[in-house]
Design a binder for these strands. Structure first.
Lengths: 246, 246
DNA sequence: TCAAAAGTGTTGCGACTACACCCATGT
DNA sequence: ACATGGGTGTAGTCGCAACACTTTTGA
């Protein structure tokens, strides 16, 4: 195990694990990038990542690479995104890269190395390799999943008001969402629950906001697709829809 | 270009492109597998695929590998699925594999090599490596996309009756769907259109069925997720929903 | 008493399911 | 006529958006 076997008919390629780490900061969605000091793409910004080592999976690899930037325990969620294989994607020679999507909740602010910084995803600096387009893929994935799963938990602190949660969704989705309907949708789906506590009102007064939390800190599909679902959801079952647990 | 650069810190791995090719045959969804003659997993069934060559992308590679089994022109759709990297997934040594999902419409019945055969996805024989679980991933992907995109076009012949289309959906989804509602949903979404022709009635008589076709043979999202869509879809626009074309 | 902020009530609508009914053909 | 299969009409429901209104606080 760990020994590499290759031949002219089975060429081998260095493989990278990359991470698109996203966090909402100051009401905007940011991606974590580091500035390349050397060619190629010196001065351009790249995704954190690095080589897949001999005895690790891609998932383990990306987690390991990230420890150089942030504590992995800060990650609210990590999932595989896609694999890029264009032979020309690295001018130095061929590499294959598998990208992951990582999310960090707002209540942590990890200390970053000097060469690493957060950049708003809608105003990225010059990016290296194909990393700009990988970030765009990550955005599409996140935005979709915010609508039909509970991924929000990975962007939010353990407890929050609906107003705070709304800010996160607006930042991540890139368009406006009302607190009223956000609250109702997520409560109806059983994604959110009140903690029973209240947040103190701001200095200008106002009714104190109730605190909420996500019911489960694990990804689950909360809006099984609206059509072609198995016939006649059983009528007894509290109104929520059936399947997709397989 | 094409030369491989690796080092102890940047180990290289043979990379495979695999394809989960699915087709509805005799009212059941089948996967194309070939029987391995040699160890490891001699006698077990594996996904078609093979090594990523020096100057091709993964997409090109999987298309090339498939030509050994079926004409690529028969494929109605091909998309990247996921990448498997467990160091122990091949007992001979480490490989990384990227799986694709391919769909073949019912009206073609490609001649297969002797070692290759179709197997119902809900009754697979013993599978090699991690290929069984890759097939399951492909199933989840297909079933989801049938509900919120027009992928159906990749399983269906150019023209068909609603009854025939229903058979395909039932087979692919694994549960019952009524022709009435299938027709209405797909028409309402603008996925299907009548050709104007009719199919001749069966020997037992009955009203002749109208023929339909998919409006576009390219993947598009037809059911943008129901929630958190941008506020106030413009009211003039014929009832169909807005975004996600990016 | 007023402004500010949070939360609920209510209405309307679009999209879906289910089921009854009507239509067009062969025998 | 009548059996067979295709298609439409229609009613009920669910989930959501929009907006008015009520509640609870600080000043």
């Amino acid at each position: 195990m760990g020994s590499v076997w290759s031949s002219p008919e089975r060429p081998a390629y260095p493989h990278q694990a990359l991470a698109v780490v996203l966090q909402v900061r100051a009401r905007r969605l940011h991606a974590m990038l580091w500035e390349r000091p050397n060619e190629p793409f010196a001065g351009a910004w790249a995704l954190p990542g690095g080589p897949l080592l001999a005895d690790e999976t891609l998932g383990a690899s990306v987690a390991r690479q990230l420890t150089a930037k942030v504590e992995v325990s800060h990650l609210g969620h990590l999932e595989q995104l896609e694999t890029r294989s264009d032979p020309g994607r690295d001018p130095r020679g061929r590499t294959v890269a598998t990208a992951y999507l990582g999310l960090i909740p707002t209540h942590v602010d990890p200390a970053l190395p000097d060469d690493t910084a957060w950049h708003p995803v809608d105003d990225l600096p010059t990016t290296a390799f194909d990393h700009g387009s990988i970030v765009r893929s990550a955005l599409v994935r996140l935005r979709s999943k915010l609508s039909y799963t509970n991924v929000g938990f990975a962007l939010a602190p353990p407890e929050f008001t609906v107003a705070e949660l709304r800010e996160l969704y607006v930042a991540a989705l890139g368009y406006d969402v009302t607190a009223t309907n956000l609250q109702r949708v997520l409560l109806r789906r059983g994604v959110l629950e009140p903690t029973g506590e209240q947040a103190p009102p701001g200095r200008a007064g106002g009714r104190p906001a109730a605190l909420y939390r996500f019911v489960t800190p694990e990804l689950s599909v909360t809006d099984p697709f609206a059509v072609f679902r198995p016939p006649s959801r059983r009528p007894g079952s509290e109104g929520r829809r059936g399947g997709l647990e397989g």
